[in-house]
Amino acid sequence: MEGTIDGFRYGAVTPAAAFVMACLGGALGLRCIVRTLLNPASFKPGWLALGAASIGCGIWTMHFIAMIGFQVAQTRVGYHVGLTVLSLAVAVVVVGVGVFIVGYRGAGRAALSLAGAVTGLGVAAMHYLGMAAMQLNGVVSYAPFTVALSVVIAVAAATAALWAAVTTRGFLTSLGASLVMGLAVSGMHYTAMAAVSVHVHDTTASWTGDTATSLLLPMLIGPVIFLLLAGVVVMFDPLLVLGDGEWNRPARSARTGAPSQPAERPATVRSWSRE
């Protein structure tokens, strides 16, 4: 028999929380990439790795927070631990490939297309690997057209996010890009979930797996703590707080011997002396 699927068991709570986590991961990742562009002398691999981990954890956390609200009325839903952890690793590693490509190659058409395709396909792979981790008394099937549409959305969202990462500098523009990224990633997730149908087996069979909340909530603690710690690192980094001009002004003055005061002041003093 066909299962009755509900993707919004807790109403707007899980979609809203998932969107917030996707935006947080995107915002942190974008700021880390911007950090390497503002100061080329910084430890670029470390900042790019932190950005990739932030975006990957944000996407993975978004997915499984949204999945807490997923249920099939005729059977309980659980998750395989190994596949769930593997989906997190896939998200971080594949996003990292895209981030490192644009971090070192820039936003050229070829580099951006390659990075966006790799990252988008990785995000889609993370999603469907996470779906493969589901354990229920039935068989999950997908509508091919909707699956293809979700992959296209993932690639487009990843390409747009990576383009924004290497072309935006200001805090407000990065914030806006992260909101768009969160919306796109959430849209990809719920588009992919619209492709799902479940054929339920014997509804009298006993359940032996963990429930979604008992397994997912403890697993989400680690990535959420990582995102919070990454947020602290980004918030207290002087370059990202002060901006490029304020950070570089003392260094430029020291190299050139030029005073840090505006150039008009000496002219004003000379005009007084003539009077």
Rank of each mutant, 00 (worst) to 15 (best):
G130Y: 07
L30Y: 05
R105W: 01
F145R: 12
P45N: 09
V232M: 13
A148Q: 10
P15Q: 03
Y142C: 10
S273P: 00
W60D: 02
S113Y: 00
V20T: 12
G116R: 06
I225E: 05
A117H: 06
A41I: 09
I225A: 13
V147E: 03
M219G: 05
D6H: 14
M219E: 04
P45C: 09
I68W: 05
G120L: 01
A195Y: 08
G103D: 07
D210I: 06
G122R: 08
G245E: 14
Y10V: 09
I225G: 01
P223W: 07
S186V: 12
V196L: 15
A41F: 11
R169S: 13
R105N: 04
T167Q: 11
A115D: 06
M219K: 08
V93D: 06
V81W: 12
E2R: 13
A143N: 15
A73Y: 14
S253K: 10
A66H: 02
W247E: 11
G182I: 05
G98P: 03
P250T: 02
A194N: 11
V151A: 09
T256H: 09
F145Q: 13
L228N: 04
N248P: 00
F100A: 07
P259M: 13
I101P: 05
A111F: 05
A194G: 09
W247S: 12
V81F: 14
H127M: 11
H199P: 00
T4L: 02
G25K: 02
L227G: 00
V97W: 10
A66N: 00
A66P: 00
D244L: 11
M235W: 13
A160C: 10
F226I: 14
P238R: 04
A195M: 10
W207N: 12
P223C: 08
N39C: 13
T4Y: 09
G58M: 06
P262V: 07
G138S: 12
H127G: 09
G69D: 05
M21G: 00
A18H: 00
G120K: 01
V198Y: 10
P223R: 02
V93M: 09
A157G: 14
A161W: 09
W47C: 00
G11V: 02
H201R: 13
A258F: 13
M62W: 08
V123K: 01
T146L: 15
G187N: 10
H63Y: 06
P223G: 06
D244K: 14
S253T: 14
